[in-house]
Design a protein around this nucleic acid. Structure first.
Length: 573
RNA sequence: GGGCCCAUAGCUCAGCUGGUAGAGCAGCGGCCUUUUAAGCCGUUAGUCGCAGGUUCAAAUCCUGCUGGGCUCACCA
């Protein structure tokens, strides 16, 4: 509490209103009233008071002189003034507390004179305590007639206008404290999110999962493909990453015998912002031993349906004007079928990397990305030879890789020739693995947005799944699904790879991709491989985006509407 | 980073093909002891985002800048 007078706020846009309110504050002090009084103890919340009168019969034609509806009991409530209508010698105000709102009638002849004199300085936004009994007004509203009013906090700054909320989008996020007071929909959203998270915890606890917390600061990058934030520990002089996923630590715990674990916590990814991306976001990740990705589909259906019933009153919910039916079972669609049936591509795309690369570019995948997905299969020597043979030489493998990709981008007419040359270095499985990776890129470019109703997209290509278990019947695909709702990825799950040798090979492939210029790759995590060597039971794991789930259930269009304090550019920058 | 749009009173906005600033709300003063975005009377309030240009004259037209929004790209 600083003692700055009205003049101190001179630079503020709202200085005049603030100055007026500070004047009232001074007047209160001169009246011997503490405008920041402490110690008023409410006996009830507004909603408790209302509930106590639920069963009381309301007079059809209320007497003009207020009389207690219910015995001699008095109720003390406290809250912020959210409406204020004054008649000079009487006033109706509405007090809001954590539970709800209750109208209060303050009348000059019903409270001590000094209290009424102070009350005249009350504005919307101030906090008051009131004690009295309840009656019904002529318009039928349950109202507390106050026999005592106490100033609890004088608000020196006015609230934003309440009937259209804060129109300035940026200010709404920056000044969340004001948004929550003024925008009922916003407050409702965050209460819903909070209840959603506790329900998820109860759901998993009931299934014998153990909640844990794993490090947010990592030495190696893993568990997802994303660019990281970097930080530094001074005493150890250690560069660290803010984690992009908790996955590898959680699976270490499965090795250690915590064979059903979950964590609900933040991930940090150094990427652009959008309506569905905030740099820090909340993920639920859970791992269940002796389960498969197929079991997790069932579990996910149960969880979402449960949340929708509890929070939205049923499994058919409205999201941004579209009805979404969360009632199980949900559609299951393999990546291959999505690409052939929805996008209309030939299934050759999943066999022949050359056809896949050309198709990918045709549907809008960036040519450099498409070409990189091919060359990632080549080692250094092969890269040099491939480049030389298409006339895009480089002094070293890295330069050769870049030259190869540049040539592919620059000359559309020779793309097929370049792709064919690169593919000629691949074995049969490798050809299909690369084709699969490109098939996935085609899916994202084409069919993803059409998956509005809940859909499990299954059987992901190995090339994009460095931590997932291979399918028994086709080793270039994985036992993995992603859940799409409303055209947006909501969850990602797979049967976990627990063969340490295969895992080492996958990490090596990540390093190779990085050498070819891929920005979002995992580090080789030797300690994790060591853990796998100790034996990890067969398990399946899943990550669910809590923010996106809250968006869905609260029917909000932007991730910023479900994150209390989203990342904002500094003011005026 | 590309495209489209916006910036006028504390807030929400009007201001036509150029003629020199307006409403509602909020605030302040007054009246009012049953209001529901209370009402009635009065009143304060603006370097029209910034800098140039065209013009006798610019909130209005042009250029640049700044800030913001939407969208595309990026985000497996």
């Amino acid at each position: 509490m600083d003692g700055a007078g009205a003049a101190g706020a001179g630079a503020d846009d709202e200085s005049r209103v603030i100055a007026d309110r500070r004047k009232k504050l001074e007047e209160l002090r001169q009246l011997g009233v503490n405008p920041f009084a402490n110690g008023f103890a409410p006996t009830h919340t507004t909603v408790e008071v209302i509930a106590l009168h639920d069963s009381v019969e309301k007079p059809a034609d209320p007497p003009r002189e207020p009389a207690p509806l219910r015995g001699d009991e008095r109720y003390a409530i406290a809250g912020r003034i959210v409406a204020h209508r004054s008649f000079g010698k009487a006033a109706f105000i509405k007090l809001r507390d954590r539970a709800g709102e209750l109208q209060v009638y303050v009348r000059k002849d019903k409270v001590p004179e000094a209290a009424f004199e102070a009350f005249k300085r009350a504005d919307v936004g101030d906090f008051l305590g009131a004690r009295g009994f309840c009656f019904v007004t002529k318009t039928g509203e349950l109202t507390l007639l106050s026999e005592e009013v106490v100033f609890l906090t004088k608000a020196v700054r006015p609230l934003p206008p309440s009937w259209h909320g804060i129109k300035d989008v940026e200010r709404r996020y920056r000044e969340r404290y004001a948004d929550l007071v003024v925008d009922a929909e916003s407050a409702r959203t965050f209460r819903l999110r909070s209840r959603m998270v506790s329900m998820i915890r109860r759901f998993l606890d009931a299934r014998d999962f153990l909640e844990v917390e794993t490090p947010m600061m990592h030495l190696t990058l893993g568990g997802a493909a994303a660019r990281p934030f970097r930080t530094h520990h001074n005493a150890l002089d250690l560069d660290l990453y803010m984690r992009i996923a908790p996955e590898l630590h959680l699976k270490r715990l499965v090795v250690g015998g915590f064979d059903r674990v979950y964590e609900i916590n933040r991930n940090f990814r150094n990427e652009g912002l959008s309506r569905s991306h905030n740099p820090e976001f909340t993920m639920l990740e859970f791992y269940q031993a002796y389960a498969t990705f197929s079991d997790l589909m069932t579990l996910t259906e149960e969880l979402f349906a449960h949340l929708a019933r509890e929070l939205c009153g049923g499994t058919r919910i409205m999201y941004q004007g579209t009805e979404i039916d969360l009632g199980p079972p949900w559609r299951r669609l393999s990546v291959k079928r999505a690409v052939t049936e929805i996008a209309g591509e030939s299934d050759v795309v999943f066999e022949d990397p050359v056809a896949a690369a050309l198709a990918a570019v045709r549907v809008g995948v960036r040519p450099d990305e498409a070409c990189r997905m091919l060359v990632e299969a080549l080692d250094e020597q092969e890269t040099m030879r491939a480049a030389a043979e298409v006339g895009a030489s480089g002094a070293n493998p890295h330069a050769a890789s870049r030259a190869l990709i540049e040539r592919f981008v620059a000359s559309p007419e020779s793309r097929e020739q370049i792709a064919t040359k690169i593919a000629s270095f691949m074995g049969e499985d490798e050809r299909r693995e690369r084709a699969g990776g490109l098939g996935m890129a085609i899916f994202e470019q084409t069919a993803e947005k059409d998956l509005v109703q809940p859909t499990f997209l299954t059987d992901f290509p190995l090339a994009v799944s460095p931590l997932a278990r291979r399918k028994d019947d086709d080793p270039v695909f994985c036992d993995r699904f992603e859940l799409y709702i409303g055209g947006r990825e909501m969850a990602n799950a797979f049967s976990e790879l627990n063969d340490p040798d295969d895992q080492r090979a996958r990490f090596l492939a990540q390093l190779r991709a990085k050498a070819h210029g891929a920005e979002e790759t995992m580090d080789y995590d030797e300690d994790y491989c060591r853990a796998l060597e100790l034996g990890m039971p067969p398990a399946a794991g899943e990550g669910i985006g809590i923010d996106r789930l809250a968006m869905l259930l609260a029917d909000r269009a932007s991730i910023r509407d479900v994150i209390l304090f989203p990342l904002m550019r500094p003011e005026g920058k």
